[in-house]
Design a protein around this nucleic acid. Structure first.
Length: 304
DNA sequence: CATGTTTCCTGACAGC
DNA sequence: TGCTGTCAGGAAACAT
């Protein structure tokens, strides 16, 4: 399932392939679940827009879009002399099984394709998602930025809480800010790590792997970790995520990047999906429990 | 507010 | 072979 390292890999791959291209047209499937913006909003933001860059925020792939004033004027009769370029963003959340693929337009369309963006060459960007937990939405930045303050209007998009919300980037967060996230929380540390309102981008695989590396049991109360343990966890999360990004993510179930390549970090997993197998450090069988409704893997000897 | 539980989806896989 | 049942999980909705 795509978490931060997988999303980073996909976003980088898509960026390399389509940066600078223009979206000529858009096709949307009939299943409504994947669309958090209306089809009209999606069409308005995407059709005719140029892709300025593709990057990652938390678990979202963010496609920065622009339309220059000349093109915008051509599209409408209004002709302001000093019009700013129109700006927007296409947000893609892959959920469990979502894929964002760049391919030739004549390649066969896979089952569960929900959106196709035709580019100004012979290629397409396709959003494919069998389980339909993934979500597509667009932001109109020109409309949502107040002219005087430059700040986004409050309440512009409560639907995109996970994207614009309070969560912090785990690779950027300072140790002090990291500690503050958990202070006073009685929820299990694993639940806190999965909470996107606290940290962006950590999912089931990297929560388990980080807790193993830090030697902390997943059910420990978040607010009761010692300073030393928090220090271990802070650096464990960052090192696990960085190593996973370097290896192109973890390919469990059917994850592939923008060109269909698999990642290699699954070969480095110490506990995730290793239930009953010997711990690679102490040989104790890896145990599986349920935390926050998620399968949770840990070594009862190495983690305290 | 904080925390726990249920729901949405389909493919994979076990068992008969 | 083909059917049925179970399970996985991100995040939102709902319940406590």
């Amino acid at each position: 399932m795509p978490e931060l390292p997988e999303v980073e890999t996909i976003a980088n791959g898509v960026d390399q392939r389509v940066r600078g291209r223009t979206i000529l047209s858009l096709w949307l499937g009939s299943k409504p679940e994947p669309f958090r913006s209306t089809p009209a909003e999606l069409a308005h933001a995407l059709t005719g827009s140029a892709i300025e860059r593709v990057h990652r925020v938390g678990k979202h792939i963010v496609v920065d879009l622009t339309r220059d004033p000349i093109a915008a004027r051509r599209r409408s009769t209004a002709a302001p002399t000093k019009s700013q370029p129109w700006r927007g963003q296409w947000l893609v959340h892959l959920g469990m099984t979502g894929r964002l693929l760049v391919c030739q337009a004549d390649e066969p369309t896979p089952k569960h394709t929900h959106a196709i963006l035709q580019l100004d060459d012979t290629r397409e960007i396709r959003f494919v998602d069998s389980r339909r937990f993934g979500r597509l939405s667009v932001l109109d930045l020109s409309a949502e930025v107040a002219p005087n303050t430059g700040k986004r209007k409050s309440g512009a998009s409560s639907r995109d809480e996970g994207f614009l919300g309070p969560g912090q980037e785990p690779l950027d967060i300072s140790f002090d800010a990291f500690c503050a996230l958990f202070r006073g929380r009685r929820t299990p540390i694993k639940s806190a790590l999965l909470n996107q309102k606290l940290l962006h981008g950590v999912g089931n695989i990297y929560a388990d792997e980080s807790l193993f590396r830090a030697g902390i049991r997943p059910r420990r109360q978040a607010g009761r970790l010692t300073a030393k343990e928090l220090e271990c966890l802070h650096s464990a999360i960052q090192s696990v995520l960085r190593e996973a990004i370097a290896l192109g993510g973890s390919s469990v179930s059917d994850y592939v990047d923008a060109s269909g390549q698999k990642g290699f970090f699954q070969l480095e997993h110490k506990v995730y999906l290793r239930t009953g197998e010997p711990c690679l450090v102490c040989q104790t069988p890896v145990r599986r429990i349920l935390v926050a409704g998620r399968g949770t893997h840990f070594c009862p000897h190495c983690q305290h």
